[in-house]
Simulated scan of single mutants.
Amino acid sequence: MASSAAKTVLIVYAHQSAGSFNAAAKDATVDVLEKQGCKVLVSDLYAMAFEATATEKDITGSVKNPEHFCYGEETMLAWQEGQLASDIVEEHKKLQEAELVVFQFPMYWFSVPAIMKGWMDRVLTLGFAYTPEKRYSQGIFRDKKAMLSFTTGSHESMFSPNGINGDMNVTLWPIQNGVLYYCGFQVLAPQIFWAPKHLSSEGREKLLESWRTRLPGLLSETPLAFPTADSFDAGKGYQLKPDIKKLQAESPFGLTVGHHMEKPLPPHNQMKAGV
Rank of each mutant, 00 (worst) to 15 (best):
L148N: 05
M48I: 11
V63N: 04
K246G: 13
G166T: 15
G139P: 11
P174N: 14
N269Y: 09
G153C: 02
M147T: 03
W194E: 01
S220Q: 09
G274H: 01
L180M: 05
A249F: 05
Q83R: 10
L33M: 14
E51H: 05
R212L: 06
A24I: 00
V40G: 11
A52N: 08
V102P: 03
D243C: 06
K93W: 14
L172E: 08
P190L: 01
G235C: 03
A25G: 03
G118E: 01
E67P: 00
S149P: 01
E133V: 02
G184N: 03
K39H: 12
D87C: 09
S17Y: 02
H155Y: 05
Q83W: 00
E91G: 05
F105D: 02
G37Q: 05
P113W: 00
I164C: 05
T171G: 07
K245W: 12
Y181E: 00
M1T: 10
A249K: 11
V89W: 03
E56S: 06
A47D: 09
I59M: 09
T171E: 02
E156D: 04
P252S: 05
E202V: 02
I192V: 11
R142Y: 01
H268Y: 15
G166P: 07
S200R: 12
G254A: 04
H260S: 15
S201Q: 07
Q104A: 01
H155L: 02
D243V: 13
T53C: 11
N65R: 09
R214N: 09
F185W: 08
A129G: 13
I11G: 10
G72V: 02
Y238E: 14
V30W: 00
L215A: 10
W79N: 04
L172W: 00
S4M: 12
Q186R: 14
T213Y: 13
V32H: 08
A2F: 10
W109D: 10
K272A: 06
R135P: 13
Q80G: 15
T152A: 05
A47Y: 10
W211I: 05
A225I: 07
V275I: 07
E99K: 13
V40D: 12
D167R: 10
A18N: 09
M261Y: 14
E91N: 15
M107K: 01
T171H: 15
A6F: 13
T171R: 10
A189V: 09
P264K: 12
R214M: 11
V40N: 09
